[in-house]
Nucleic acid binder design. Sequence first.
DNA 1: AGCGATAGAATTGTAAACAATTGACAGATG
DNA 2: CATCTGTCAATTGTTTACAATTCTATCGCT
Lengths: 229, 229
Amino acid sequence: MPQGYSLEPVVQESTPSIIARKLRYAIAHGEVAPGSQLGEAELARELGVSRGPLREAMQRLTQEGLLVSIRNRGLFVIEMTDAEIRDMYVLRTAIESAACKLLVRADHVAAGNDLLAKVAKMENASNAGDRAAMSDADLAFHEDLVALSGSRSLARIHSTLMTETRMCLTVLQASYRGTEEWIAEHRGIAEAILDGNGPLAELRLGEHEDDALARLTNSPSEPASVSIA
Amino acid sequence: MPQGYSLEPVVQESTPSIIARKLRYAIAHGEVAPGSQLGEAELARELGVSRGPLREAMQRLTQEGLLVSIRNRGLFVIEMTDAEIRDMYVLRTAIESAACKLLVRADHVAAGNDLLAKVAKMENASNAGDRAAMSDADLAFHEDLVALSGSRSLARIHSTLMTETRMCLTVLQASYRGTEEWIAEHRGIAEAILDGNGPLAELRLGEHEDDALARLTNSPSEPASVSIA
DNA sequence: AGCGATAGAATTGTAAACAATTGACAGATG
DNA sequence: CATCTGTCAATTGTTTACAATTCTATCGCT
């Protein structure tokens, strides 16, 4: 077997899948504003595909909750209210907490070290003053947290949440002030996992996501998660 | 304004949505076996629609994880291995636990009574020896648990999990022996919520879902959830 | 007899044309 | 002058036809 080529099975990604991925990226990165309409004809021309596959891709994104469909009117990018963002974080915390539970019962040492490496990346981005890299590293941390749990179900749901989160970050131009504290929170989670202390990891995770929520929404409101102490 | 007509806005459900709903039901109730192929032409003829809307519905179900697509081969109903069923229950437990957390912070008395009413329905079905009604009441309990939490995010994810659960129940012809214990578990959860005891509700929920898992899978394996004590 | 290649059939992926519904603007009417 | 109605333009929803890819079965060869 020739080295250098990881002979993975050729992934014949379907056209709707490609379109969905591109649109997801565009929405996540604010290239299309929330609330704006996505005209079929225009998009099809832009992407160089016909309306059939495009509509199929739209259905996927609608199912994911990134678009809302109004019959005979068109498809629109979701506009998330503060309440909806809070609700999203309820789900996100639920998913990541479950991932923590799984992690501490698996190889939590390897996972913890892996996550600490991601924290180091955040520090580098922070020192360089690179806001975009900071966001990337932040999201990568949480994505890894779930990926390392080995649960396909959790990962699938979580990936859609990450695009929504990215969208909020982009749109709201979330301020990354208090960076040191921000990094410390991530490190705290990683260390709790390294120690195999599941409840502590979940507790810190809950507090961390409450902080994140406070940065994204105006009303402080009640925290999304509660202490299990 | 004429009485007798509740003049709610007419909801024009889109054709793909209708198709998706019908297919979901068919899959959940074992009318199409797991692993079987869904031919476009045949389905379109059966449902009286053309391939366009049908394909859009398929994309939705694929996104939900009920179907898997193999390019140029077709769409197939998922076959869940024991490992995948366990993984699904990890997610399900995560969602329902989060719902418990929300519930005890809201009107947990009303919610608890509501859930106890569902338990009563289970008892009736049990006494009547009606297995189908038993399944319905079982699923209705868990559906309400999430619905009462008021979280749209949780409800959306949970609804897809319920169809998958129903599919497993149907396919595996899950035995409902030990019905008394089964009902008692549900009652325990409802009472914990009635009392506003979140941690206890989550604990009992976790044990309950482990039991459910044991009925569905062959290998006992390790429990999906861990005690938080 | 077993293996390989080739041809055929079936199915999916794509595209373009057609039909139906909606929203807005303009004109008529009280 | 305000309001209602009718027409028009634009967009979506649906259907039909066509192209490309893949599986299968048969035929020939070793």
